[in-house]
Simulated assay, not measured.
Amino acid sequence: MKRWMIISYFLTCQVGIGLAQGTSSEQVGISPWGPEDEIGTLNMMDEKSRLDVLSQISSGNVYDLSVEYFVGMPSFHALGDPAYQFWMTHTPKGTVVDNPNGLGEAMNLKVSYTGDAISMYTHMGTHIDALNHFGLNGKVWNGFSAEEYLGDKGWKKTGAETIPPVIGRGVLIDILALKQVDQLPENYRINSSDLREALAKQKVELQEGDIVLIRTGQARHYEQAERYLDKYPGINLDAVKWLVEDQGIMLLGSDNLSFEAFPPEREDNWVPVHTYLLAEKGVMFIEQMNLESLAEDGVYEFAFIGSSLKLRGASAAPMRPIAIPIK
């Protein structure tokens, strides 16, 4: 994306953030990519940008940045959302007993048949938030209103099915390593100074169109849901404003439950980072990533490749991103 387009974009979408005790002028951003735009800053990605990063791959080593799905995994149960459920629909022994295919005992003893099903909230495990996930005053990114575009089967605009496969230059910012501690303080808010200091320590510079992943270290506790969910650190408004407005990043991600820290840093908005990114700026982000292997090997620059499920009308979709080191 050209510099003048970046400047035009942020002038178009710019809104006042306000102090916690002050009034808010938050409103949804109108896309510089046109009235039908549903993917926001992912428009910064094109054939050339994808080819550029893929041509820099310097290793056949692949890092899986996703977590596993399992019964008992962390979830948003505090808000009333369903937990992950898994059940068997067919088992080798049950098929012999039930004979569901009508082929008889001999065939079902020979051919072992296993099948299963799941039920889950779309914002579980490693997933990307679509632009309809959070809005302001009844509208989501680009002015699409719930009154006009939200049907009984989900959103008619900005649903997860619109999210394209993502290929771009990825950058890991390791905040836990910067602080040289085993665990960040409870509810710690990562700020722009933290980001700048970590990048300087890593000797990495951000570029327009980057995919920036923030490591808090929280993924180390993913198997223990209560600890993973408890008072986790996250990014603050100052940090995301610096990344979006000053650095021109395309996509964000982190290893915690909900990207930003709680309790909210403002009194007039319970998810100010979410609404700033999704509703005001059209910037999607990935939550509940596993960034430990990248951090362990000191891989800070890489080709990011990720594709999400095309869940029509949904506000999020599971994603399995990978990272491949670049030169």
Rank of each mutant, 00 (worst) to 15 (best):
I324H: 04
Y84E: 01
E36Y: 09
L54I: 05
G115H: 11
G60L: 09
M319I: 14
R320F: 09
G282S: 09
H133M: 13
N132G: 08
D194V: 08
I305R: 00
G115Y: 08
D81F: 15
Q183F: 06
H77V: 13
N61L: 14
A219E: 07
S59H: 01
E105Y: 06
Q288W: 00
R215G: 11
V171E: 01
K201A: 13
C13A: 09
L199H: 14
L311V: 10
G102W: 05
W155P: 04
P321N: 06
M284D: 02
L109P: 01
G80I: 10
I7P: 02
F259Q: 00
G138D: 00
A106S: 13
S308N: 11
I128H: 06
E267W: 15
Q202M: 09
G306N: 03
P82S: 09
S55V: 05
H221M: 12
S315W: 03
A317Q: 01
S119L: 10
A239E: 04
S258D: 13
K201Y: 07
M289N: 04
A219K: 00
I286F: 01
R266W: 09
E265S: 15
G143N: 11
P185A: 08
L176N: 03
E105F: 03
E208C: 06
E68N: 13
Y9A: 02
Y222Q: 09
L291I: 14
D64Y: 12
V244C: 00
S145R: 07
R227G: 06
E186D: 15
R312S: 10
G159C: 04
Y149F: 12
D230I: 07
K310R: 15
Q27V: 12
M124F: 02
P74Y: 03
P82I: 12
E260R: 05
K139V: 03
L150Y: 13
G94S: 08
E267Q: 15
G60W: 04
I214M: 07
R320Q: 12
S119T: 07
P185D: 11
G29H: 13
Q180T: 06
F304M: 05
S66F: 03
I190A: 02
E208T: 11
V53A: 11
D255S: 06
N142L: 12
L257A: 10
I326G: 01
Y232L: 03
S59E: 04
V53F: 10
